[in-house]
Design a protein around this nucleic acid. Structure first.
Length: 449
RNA sequence: GCCGCUAUCGUCCAGGGGACUAGGACGCCGCCCUCUCACGGCGGAAACCCGGGUUCGAAUCCCGGUAGCGGUACCA
């Protein structure tokens, strides 16, 4: 029996949380929740140029909205600079690191002389000033990865990495390793873009005299064009998905499947089952593409699992309107996202929408205007004004006119909804009520053909 | 360039030496349902990157090529 895992999610606040970060957070969370471990949230804000408090807020907010919680933190990496400096001094004192005046340009020159495959080896500066580089040992560095197996890095290929700026502030590869070690992290689960950095971090662990944690590098997520999905490219931030009307549960299910799958063919997996079934060893090694149509479909399934009360509450929160229940009842099975609702059913509340093409097609011909007139007359007499009675009355009109059903129904639909697609016609009319329905038809009839 | 990772339908995920006539889901196409749009049901098209090797047998193992991706910062 091994100790409960301690995982961490460590975003850098240089932008919004995008879907790739969300997935990394989710996988960490699943590992922690499955085994009764804990999840640490750390903000990697050592990039002082690009990190902002607003981004930190956004990320925390996105995580909470997604339903991914954490047990410790958020801890700020910059606030640990004292500890970083202390470790740095120790490494310097022990000769495992050295200060150097060498610049990136000097490294290039070195490569030109020794070949691209040869790792940079520098000399300490005479005055003891400059950036801090780590010494690289002679032995191979192997990353034991839970998803991709062992990856071996030969030391001669590795540049001596810069771990701190000349002013003594820590750089990423150094700070992560120190912080993960101090936090007793057992599993580092992050994107594959960090795989090449891992040997540098291994160096830090070795210098610390510590056992490195287990690593799990997740395949990257790409946009639909096959290119890397990032803050600047392809978007898909959690906030955007939220604004697009997706449910957290659906997003969790969808992104869990982006890079992971078990032998069971199930596609719809509730979060509790995800926790139970998730296995790092079954994470895919191939990059995946974010496919929004599939998320849409999945979201529709989750939407339809909600009770009408729950759906109404979601929709009222989403649209900022209330009294939506009647409209929700008749549109629930027609929407895939919360954002789909208003374009479909908003006419019930705000009047017919303006769709010239629909008017031209269904309200211009004399035949349609006559049908609408007949329907108006029938509707005026329907008693009670219920779905069933409206249904019967309008079908009587169809029968009397001897036309196809749609030649009566569509003009009525366009008259009351303004457009050719809507929830069920009879249901819509019943929701509107006789008075409102007749008045909309009258307006349509008065409008010039 | 160098270092590294990856390679099954358009996309995601299964399968992983003979059970493969390669499975499921999204999407797509057709049909059914139907007042529109959806939902739902049924059916269909659609993939093992290429070349060698190992083996009685390879999509599955090995090597090479190719392609894609990542890293190559005093960013994270």
């Amino acid at each position: 029996m091994s100790a409960p895992p301690r995982v961490r999610f460590a975003p850098s606040p240089t932008g919004a949380l995008h879907i790739g970060g969300a997935r990394a957070a989710l996988y960490n969370w699943l590992v922690a929740r499955k085994a009764g471990g804990s999840m640490v949230l750390r903000i990697e804000d050592t990039d002082r140029e690009r990190s902002t408090p607003e981004n930190v807020e956004q990320i925390l907010d996105a995580l909470q909205w997604l339903g991914i919680d954490w047990d410790e933190g958020p801890i700020s990496q910059v606030e640990r600079s004292g500890r970083h400096r202390q470790v740095l001094d120790d490494l310097l004192a022990r000769g495992l690191a050295y200060r150097t005046a060498a610049t990136a340009e000097d490294v290039k020159v070195y490569k030109r002389e020794h070949g691209d495959a040869v790792g940079y080896r520098g000399e300490p500066s005479a005055d003891g000033e400059g950036a801090v580089r780590l010494r690289v040992p002679e032995h191979e560095l192997v990353v034991h990865d839970l998803v991709r197996g062992d990856t071996t890095f030969r030391p001669e290929h590795l540049d001596e990495p810069v771990v701190a700026r000349a002013d003594g502030t820590a750089l990423y590869n150094f700070a992560v390793a120190v912080d993960d070690h101090d936090a007793a992290i057992t599993h580092v689960i992050r994107g594959e873009d960090h795989l090449s950095n891992t040997p540098k971090q291994l160096l830090v662990y070795a210098a610390l005299g510590a056992e490195p944690p287990a690593f799990a590098h997740l395949p990257l997520l790409h946009g639909h064009d096959g290119k890397k999905l990032s803050k600047r490219h392809g978007a898909a931030s959690v906030q955007e998905l939220r604004a697009a009307g997706y449910l957290p549960a659906a997003i969790r299910n969808y992104i869990a499947l982006l890079g992971w799958g078990d032998t069971d063919a199930e596609t719809l997996i509730a979060t509790d089952d995800l926790i139970e079934r998730f296995e790092l060893s079954r994470v895919s090694r191939n990059p995946a593409r974010f496919d929004e149509p599939k998320l849409r479909w999945m979201n529709g399934r989750y939407l339809r699992e909600l009770s009408l009360d729950e759906l109404t509450a979601e929709l009222e929160r989403f649209t900022g309107r209330d009294g939506l229940r009647p409209g929700v009842e008749i549109s629930a099975e027609k929407i895939q996202t919360l954002a789909d609702f208003w374009p479909l059913a908003g006419f019930l509340y705000d009047g017919p929408v303006d769709d010239p093409k629909a008017r031209k097609k269904w309200l211009a011909a004399a035949e349609h205007r006559e049908a609408l007139t007949d329907a108006r007359a029938a509707l005026a007499d329907v008693e009670p004004f219920t779905v069933e009675a409206i249904d019967a009355a309008l079908r009587d009109v169809v029968a009397a006119r001897g036309t196809k059903a749609k030649d009566v129904f569509q003009p009525v639909r366009v008259a009351v909804a303004g457009t050719a697609a809507s929830p069920g016609l009879f249901e819509s009319l019943a929701v509107l009520g006789r008075e409102e329905a007749l008045s909309r038809i009258d307006v349509a009839l008065r409008a010039p053909a």
